[in-house]
Design a protein around this nucleic acid. Sequence first.
DNA 1: ATGGTCGCGCAGCGA
Length: 275
Amino acid sequence: MRIATWNVNSLTAERIDRVVGWLDIAQPDVLCLQETKQTDDAFPALDFHARGYASVHHGEGRWNGVAILSRVGLDDPVPGFADGEPADDEARLVTATCGGVRVSSVYVPNGREVGHDHFRYKLRWLARLRAHVRADVPAAGSTGGQGRPGEPVPRAVCGDFNVAPDDLDLWSPAAFEGSTHVTPEERAAVAELEALGLRDVFREQYPGVGDLFSWWDYRAGAFHKHRGMRIDLLLFSSDLADRVTWALIDRIARKGSKPSDHAPVFADVEVDPPS
DNA sequence: ATGGTCGCGCAGCGA
């Protein structure tokens, strides 16, 4: 089972061709999208359905917007946090069961500047994501669901975390001194999420290897200068993480005209197909 | 060269 994530930086008519083209080439079983910037009505579900993908979208229009595409089933979709607290104003999280895996597509707030209100929102958001993972369980007896309420299920939390977990995930640690994405607070928030048993499966495939980035600034030729960050993560529960055979960032998808500023990331897991 | 480019939407903000 191939599980992928891609911040597409909008799903306009121009970008949809790139996404559909990537589905045809990469053949993911599950693809988590972020920054669709579409309303639910405008989300091009039919383009995906025509290629065998069911989908769920949680959008608001101009900004944010997340989706999950799956060709191994898609059940019990939940928009936003399942922590019982008031709904988030912004469409940054959607969760569904795909092929027996509880999948979340996440778009963590950027933070803007350290100390900014939006930075505090980012930290609160990551804390809420942790609460969501603890609280969210698929309905008992649902198709593809392997867990009963209260029992852990295979889980994949995938998306744009806007946090580089380690200096190894930066083209230049010095270039990010004092900026967001690298602070101890942000890294601790991701580490607390991982403390629930979730593992950064891309990093596990490439321990100690630098220059593996998933985002490059549009400006100043950053992509061609290999000046990027690894901020798009696949966090898998251990039962899945133990069965990952390989993972890749498809930086080819960052090339050409009108690319997203992010590249897709995927991991392959040896799992039994849903019965 | 202390900026540089995108997307959204039509000014200027957000990333």
